[in-house]
Amino acid sequence: MAQMEHFAVRPGCGPAAVDSVAARMSAYGSAWPAADGLAVFNRVYLKVTEEIGRRIDGGGFPDPRAATTLSVLFAERYLFAVGATADGVRPPACWRPLFQYRRHPGVRPLQFALAGINAHIGHDLALAVVDTCHALGCEPVDVEGEFEGVGDILELLEERIREDLMPGPDLLQIADPLTHLVGSWSLERAREGAWSAARLLWRLRDLPELAGEFTERLDAGVGLVGRCLLTPWR
Results as ranks from 00 to 15, higher is better:
Pro232Lys: 15
Leu218Pro: 12
Asp63Trp: 08
Thr231Val: 13
Ala190His: 07
Val44Trp: 00
Thr132Asn: 08
Asp142Cys: 07
Glu163Asp: 14
Tyr78Cys: 03
Ala84Val: 05
Arg203Lys: 15
Glu163Met: 10
Asp142Val: 06
Phe112Ala: 05
Gly37Phe: 05
Ala23Tyr: 04
Tyr28Ser: 08
Pro91Arg: 12
Glu144Ala: 07
Thr69Val: 13
Val150Tyr: 00
Trp233Val: 13
Glu51Tyr: 00
Gly145Ser: 02
Ser186Pro: 12
Arg217His: 12
Gly58Pro: 03
Gly149Thr: 00
Asp36His: 06
Arg65Val: 14
Arg162Ser: 06
Ser30Gln: 11
Leu127His: 12
Gly149Cys: 00
Gln3Glu: 15
Pro92Ala: 13
Ile117Trp: 00
Arg217Lys: 12
Val72Ser: 03
His180Tyr: 10
Gly212Trp: 07
Asp170Cys: 11
Val48Cys: 01
Ala81Phe: 03
Leu201Val: 10
Pro11Thr: 08
Ile52Val: 15
Thr132Asp: 06
Val150Lys: 00
Ala135Leu: 04
Leu136Trp: 10
Arg199Thr: 15
Ala194Phe: 06
Asp131Ile: 01
Ala135Gly: 06
Pro109Phe: 03
Cys133Pro: 08
Ala126Tyr: 01
Phe41His: 14
Arg203Asn: 14
Ala84Gly: 06
Leu127Pro: 05
Pro169Ala: 13
Glu159Gly: 06
Phe7Val: 12
Glu146Leu: 04
Ala198Leu: 05
Gly183Met: 09
Gly29Tyr: 01
Glu216Ile: 11
Cys13Tyr: 07
Gly212Phe: 07
Gly212Asn: 08
Met25Ala: 04
Val130Gly: 05
Val21Leu: 01
Tyr101Lys: 13
Gly168Ile: 12
Ala115Gln: 03
Val129Asn: 02
Arg108Gln: 07
Arg10Cys: 11
Asn42Thr: 10
Val130Ala: 10
Glu76Lys: 06
Gln173Ala: 15
Glu50Asp: 04
Gly193Gln: 09
Ala194Arg: 09
Arg10Ala: 15
Pro15Ser: 13
Phe41Trp: 15
Leu207Thr: 15
Ala66His: 10
Phe147Thr: 01
Arg103Tyr: 04
Val44Pro: 00
Gly29Met: 03
Ser20Arg: 08
Glu5Lys: 12
Leu110Ser: 03
Gly137Cys: 03
Asp57Trp: 04
Ala126Glu: 01
Val129His: 02
Met25Phe: 08
Glu148Cys: 06
Met4Ala: 13
Val72Trp: 02
Leu156Pro: 00
Ser30Ile: 03
Glu209Leu: 15
Leu210Asp: 14
Glu148Trp: 03
Gln3His: 14
His134Met: 10
